[in-house]
Computed example of a mutant assay.
Amino acid sequence: MSFTWPLDPQDLFVERYPQMTLGLPAAEVDAVRAAVTDMWADRPGGWVYEWSALAARHAGAGRHRQAAQAYGWAKFPSLADAPKRTALARQVEQYLLASPGFPVDVERRTLTVPHRGGEAAVPVHLMAAPGLPADAPVVLASGGVDSWKTDLHGMWEQLALALPVRLLLFDLAGTGETSHLPMTPDGGTEVIEGLIAFARTLGDGRVGHFGISMGGYYSARTGLTGAVDAAVVLGGPVEHSFDPDRGFDFGMDGIVGNALGFDAAPDRAALGRAFGSFGLRPLLDRDDQAPMLVVNGADDVHVPRHDTLVFAGRRDTRVELIPDTGHCAISRFDEAMALIVPWLRTALLG
Rank of each mutant, 00 (worst) to 15 (best):
H64C: 13
P164A: 12
H180N: 02
P77A: 01
Y71T: 04
A136Q: 02
I192S: 03
L181G: 03
L161Y: 11
L152D: 14
E177A: 05
Q158G: 13
T184W: 12
V104M: 03
R57E: 10
P103Y: 01
T178S: 12
A173F: 13
L111H: 04
D105K: 12
L111G: 06
K84A: 12
L167S: 11
Q158K: 15
K84Q: 09
E177S: 07
L159M: 13
D81G: 03
G154V: 13
L126F: 05
L161N: 09
P185I: 01
G174V: 09
Q158D: 14
D171Q: 10
P100F: 03
A129H: 03
A82W: 11
I192P: 02
V122C: 05
R200C: 01
G194S: 00
V113Y: 02
V145D: 13
G62S: 09
T112R: 04
P100S: 09
G176W: 01
V106F: 08
A67S: 10
G176T: 03
A87F: 03
L79E: 01
L79K: 02
I192A: 05
L96R: 10
Q69P: 11
G131N: 03
T110E: 07
L161T: 11
T189R: 12
L79W: 02
M183C: 08
G176F: 00
G117N: 03
G194K: 00
K149Q: 14
T150W: 15
A61R: 07
S147T: 14
H115L: 08
H115F: 08
Q158P: 15
P123A: 05
Q94T: 13
